[in-house]
Design a protein around this nucleic acid. Sequence first.
DNA 1: GGAGAAAATGTAAGCGGTTACAAATCCATT
DNA 2: AATGGATTTGTAACCGCTTACATTTTCTCC
Lengths: 337, 337
Amino acid sequence: MLNIYDVSKQAGVSIATVSRVLNNSPHVSAKTKKLVMDVIAASGYVPNAFARGLGLRTMKTIGLLCPDASDPYLSSALSALEKAFRDNLYDCLLVCTGRQPSERDAGILSLSAHHVDGMVLMGSSFVSDVAVENAMILETADIPMAILNASLQAEHIYSARCDDFGATRDALLSLTQKGYSRPLYLYHALNYSGQQKFQGFHEGCHIAGIPESHVTTLLIPRENMTVAEVQRRVFALWQEGKRFDCVVTSDDILAVGALKTAGSMHLKVPGDLAIIGYNNSSICQCTSPELSSVDNRLEMLCQQIVNTMIGILQGQEMPREVVYSGKVIERGSSIAK
Amino acid sequence: MLNIYDVSKQAGVSIATVSRVLNNSPHVSAKTKKLVMDVIAASGYVPNAFARGLGLRTMKTIGLLCPDASDPYLSSALSALEKAFRDNLYDCLLVCTGRQPSERDAGILSLSAHHVDGMVLMGSSFVSDVAVENAMILETADIPMAILNASLQAEHIYSARCDDFGATRDALLSLTQKGYSRPLYLYHALNYSGQQKFQGFHEGCHIAGIPESHVTTLLIPRENMTVAEVQRRVFALWQEGKRFDCVVTSDDILAVGALKTAGSMHLKVPGDLAIIGYNNSSICQCTSPELSSVDNRLEMLCQQIVNTMIGILQGQEMPREVVYSGKVIERGSSIAK
DNA sequence: GGAGAAAATGTAAGCGGTTACAAATCCATT
DNA sequence: AATGGATTTGTAACCGCTTACATTTTCTCC
């Protein structure tokens, strides 16, 4: 493998000059620059990234901590983040951690060891309700961090998130405005955004003036969140005598499960039962009727995360937290009664 | 930031000894080892990865070239690959390239510049029919490469793939054995695996003795492969007078589109129309009836890719190409007439 | 206790770049 | 042609680690 000496020798200049050309420093004459670039092109020389990293103390790499890359929602985020970082000439190191705090911490450690310039924590799974305990671990790594879809108070931690509270409230209200009056809320976690959604749902019920007795909620833990299992549990609820005419959920999978249960409950969707999912993922178009869902602006959030991170790395001051509004996307599953 | 000198000073040993402990060389006494490890733990020292990379000429990093991380199939692969590489103490650099050869090549360049130890090309999109032209570019980077789901003849290029030919043939035959006799084949690309599937489909028709006139094929290019668009095109086919009673596809999305078109064509699924998708992705359980699909053993393939790569990096001899059989997973959409 | 081999440790030369600082060159003015 | 400032180039120190080789220590056995 060629190194910078080889190039400098071939070009008849010093290594400093070659280095300057490589980093296009202004202190090189146009003539020399062209000469060196020609030699580089001809020889096929590629600078050694490790040596470069040693000297510059960065390899322009961002760590992406993803609890589950196979999750459709997170994988979209992954794609968006990677693309945006690449546009800014940063490479992305991917670590799929799982959702356990210990796994998350191991991931953070691994990324620190790799000397990334910054880290993105994807998803609020990383921030449980025990925010304080969590923050400490995150703070120890003195690297800028950005969290997608959760918020955390700490010095070098930034975040971009959707107003899940407002979006879930609006989803519920869009149903009550159409005459639905006995909501069921299906949710899978109470991490940061899970809490927001949960509270937003109840806020909506409150605004719509729905009596407590007409409100049902059902937790289906993430590890049980398969279409079949959701069907089973929703149907069980129905058999217990619980009644509902509309469903708001914290995830599209839950909504698909509810939709597929409708038949067993002898309910027509929409009409007897209206359903709204969350995330507006591609499966919304796979069902019949198609699934209404909350678009939580993933693309924008990712773009924002990248902008923030790049800004920080350039030494600019950046807002600690950015919040976008979600949007209810109406499809067949939630049209009027 | 602490460096190895600080640690050596604090421990009262030379930096060589610290380095030996770090790389757990056998040439350190147990006593010294413990002493140094204690100092490291107490000080919170983390070795500089760039310096380490410079000396060792590797940072134990694998490049993952993914045409589209938001694709459910590829994101599952991503997750599986990352996990398996991590288990072998390799970090993964993710590059989402898109499917254009030029994008692919830019990705390869970017990964080369980062000095990864090996690269995985995810998916046969990277290998078009112009195999020779492609191979040349791949060969220039003198880094071990592994290709998922495609095959390519070249010195340092390895591959693990599913027998897509056989799997598609079997899918078709499973339908004809149930009495279906007028197959429609929906496909989205003719890259490496696309060709295999296409030929497998025709092979199946041949074996089943289906006359040419009863066979329909329809290409729906990947960029148009949305449920709505597939519906539109399949229905258009029907209106043109083409008739079919079963559908084999190269991707689950196509199958979902076909399934959702059945209503418009006044066909009952199954019975009037049977459908089998490809990839056995999670959307198969979102539809009613649920979608039969070909499981192409993604987990195994990924595991194999990682094993091969690790083996190569350890200097072992590894098989150039490994092929697994696919499996038709029967669900509601393809039971007997 | 001392010779010799084995084990542990230290010294110093890389690895391949960046960059502060020094030196050389260039150019316009006088 | 000499002067002096600006521009270009070179020299060498450094980034933090690995490792070949040299040196020291430890151990074994007579």
